[in-house]
Amino acid sequence: MSGLPPTNRTQQGSELALQSDNELMLQVCDHCNTVLYPPRELCSRCLEENLSWRPVNARGTLLAHVELARSFEDWFSERTPWLLVTVRLQEGVSLICHAHASITRVQTSDSSKPVSVHVSICKDAGGSGVLVAMPESAAGEKFASLEAALGWPVAEDFGGRAV
């Protein structure tokens, strides 16, 4: 096991890590209340500059799920298949998230049977805040790390995925 997941972020992107307790916090415009993602410096709707990180409804609909077999970064390559999903929040933003394995084995586009998931913020191995999609039953649970949120057994002295 080597390296870290990507750590390069914009100033606003790095603020995702400061949102604590796994609760889904996103930037919301102080002026027009638009929920914004990815992080930015201006509101896309009204172009005002005062944005605050606020809790948003973390329940979303699963739109797509994939398994990455290859990555440009060793940290992910060593942990394939790596699961990614697209989640749509009620607020009208789509989130690309890391995903818990239990939510990815379903048909995603049958609109008569939408799959609901819960989105949390966790810290990854590089200390950055990242979005993680989990089963709805995980709402309210606390996770010390991305690995814990993904349900991996993690040993203190073992840099990554302990099995």
Partner: peptide, 16 residues
């Protein structure tokens, strides 16, 4: 910048 914050950190797979 959107890629940097919300794309690449998620699996670093690029457009794939």
């Amino acid at each position: 910048t959107f890629t940097r914050d919300a794309g690449y950190p998620y699996g670093a797979a690029g457009p794939n």
